[in-house]
Nucleic acid binder design. Structure first.
Length: 426
RNA sequence: GGAGAGGUGGCCGAGUUGGCUUAAGGCAGCUGCCUGCUAAGCAGUUGUCCCGUUAAAUCGGGACCCCGGGUUCGAAUCCCGGCCUCUCCGCCA
């Protein structure tokens, strides 16, 4: 969330951000509530001061064995009034908080203005598209043929929208996970975490999934727990309510987790095979950094994710999201889209965002710039490094042969007992 | 799941007959002084949030002893609910 004072003093900027992001937040109501709040606060704090002072007098009188009943009677009135005002205040503050949570982050000046996906801008491309001199098969066909995907049985287990790798497919997926984690931990300096994949409500609010996206989450109602939609949630909440030391920044974390999304609004399009699923595996990257370096850190975060695709030999493009496609909490975001030959599409495998202090304020993550200085909010960033299913699609489809086999990318072979080709079983 | 104990400041740790206790004491940190030696001694200082004030440093006030309610003129201290931690037992991977 944004700082209330900032909103008050920069209402035009905030209004513009709300409009450019296509959000809907009632600033005028916010200001009205804020006004009421400060009025109430003034009144109630005055009364509390009186009460504190008088209570001391009463204590003194009692100590001197003098009569304090008159003051006590007076204070009874005052206390009554205080509790009335306090409960009014609580109401107003709850309303204020509710509105505040609907105000989106402000897009970074470098973000292109636009309405939706079609206005995103490709900023670079890497690799050559595979030229196959036969009609490439989609991954679901190859998956069935080679017995590395078992989509029908996954549906039997959990219903439509759930998928499953099996045999050498599962091995391939596990190899990818280990490969990615190894690169990020050993080469890029991230600390590996294996976090809980259920998360409490407070964590979901901090990172901005709630309240807006509650309907997209899987909920364990009995315990008010949510299945995480991304490891961004546990990783970012790692330092919730903490004051970090400046010298320990930047902090880099990476985690492999399953991710759960109800994908409630999406029917039909691009849902075949592994393209859009309710549960998928992902390696996530999260950074906590000093405010002044966050946009630089975003660039290097993107590079860290890109390197995975480069090492795998998968062609991709990087797009910067326009204001209309930028998520609620983000200041700036790059999407990595890998090309897959079978479906002949670019598929999003990573979304790398700088949230600046938007999540940090919700999650109350601060750092002390200098030993005695006032704590300030850190900046948080995250990105996939990268999501598994669509990367699998690209590998299966781009590296297929006319014979219907799949050449295993070299970097993965050490993780797969040096298997170099997935062919018919036998 | 059953029985018991407990949750206090950066950390350790007092405070449980309600009232100068935001909070003793210790450690750590910072600032002076002293000391010539990988260290010690002496003195001072040290949290966070909010409202108001100041050009600013500041100053005034309020809140915070796990969280939320309650009793009371007044609660870290009493009562109720919740969360969490520890010990023992049971159950299970």
């Amino acid at each position: 969330m944004l700082d209330l004072k900032f909103i008050r003093e920069n209402s035009e900027i905030v209004k513009e951000a709300i409009q450019n992001k296509g959000e809907d937040a009632d600033l005028d109501l916010l200001f009205k509530r804020d006004e009421v709040r400060r009025q109430l606060l003034k009144e109630v704090e005055n009364l509390k001061r009186v009460r504190n002072q008088t209570s001391e007098q009463i204590a003194q009188l009692k100590k001197d064995k003098k009569d304090a009943s008159k003051l006590m009677a007076e204070m009874k009135e005052v206390s009554h009034r205080i509790s009335e005002l306090d409960s009014e205040l609580r109401e107003v503050e709850a309303e204020l908080e509710k509105i505040l949570l609907t105000v989106p982050n402000i897009p970074h000046p470098s973000v292109p203005i636009g309405a939706g996906e079609e206005d995103n801008v490709v900023i670079r491309e890497w690799g050559e598209l595979p030229h196959l001199d036969f009609t490439p098969r989609p991954h679901w066909e190859l998956g069935e043929m080679l017995n590395i995907l078992d989509l029908a049985r996954a549906v039997k287990l959990a219903g439509s929208g759930f998928v499953m790798t099996i045999g050498r497919g599962a091995l391939l997926e596990r190899a990818l996970i280990n490969f990615m984690l190894d690169i990020h931990t050993r080469k890029h300096g991230y600390c590996e975490v294996l976090p809980p994949i259920l998360s409490g409500r407070a964590s979901m609010v901090s990172t901005g999934q709630l309240p807006k996206l509650e309907y997209d989450m899987y909920v364990v109602e009995k315990d008010d727990l949510f299945l995480i939609p991304t490891a961004e949630v546990p990783l970012t909440n790692l330092h919730r309510d903490e004051i970090l030391k400046a010298e320990e920044l930047p902090l880099y974390y990476t985690a492999f987790t399953p991710c759960f999304r109800r994908e409630s609004g999406s029917y039909g399009k691009d849902t075949r095979g592994l393209m859009r699923v309710h549960e998928f595996n992902k390696v996530e990257l999260v950074k906590f950094v000093k405010p002044q370096s966050s946009h630089q850190e975003l660039e290097s975060l993107v590079k860290d994710a890109e390197e995975i695709l480069q090492l795998l030999g998968l062609p991709y493009r990087v797009r910067v999201l326009c204001t209309g496609d930028l998520s609620f909490a983000a200041s700036k975001c790059y999407d990595l889209e890998v090309y897959a030959a079978g479906v002949d599409k670019y598929l999003e495998v990573s979304s790398c965002s700088n949230y600046e202090d938007f999540q940090a304020r919700r999650a109350n993550i601060r750092c002390r710039p200098l030993p005695k200085a006032k704590p300030e909010f850190v900046h948080t960033l995250n990105g996939s490094g990268v999501a598994l299913p669509r990367t699998l699609i690209a590998i299966i489809e781009n590296f297929q042969t006319e014979r219907g086999t799949i050449i295993v990318p070299e970097v993965l072979r050490p993780y797969m007992g040096n298997l170099d080709e997935i062919g018919p079983e036998g």
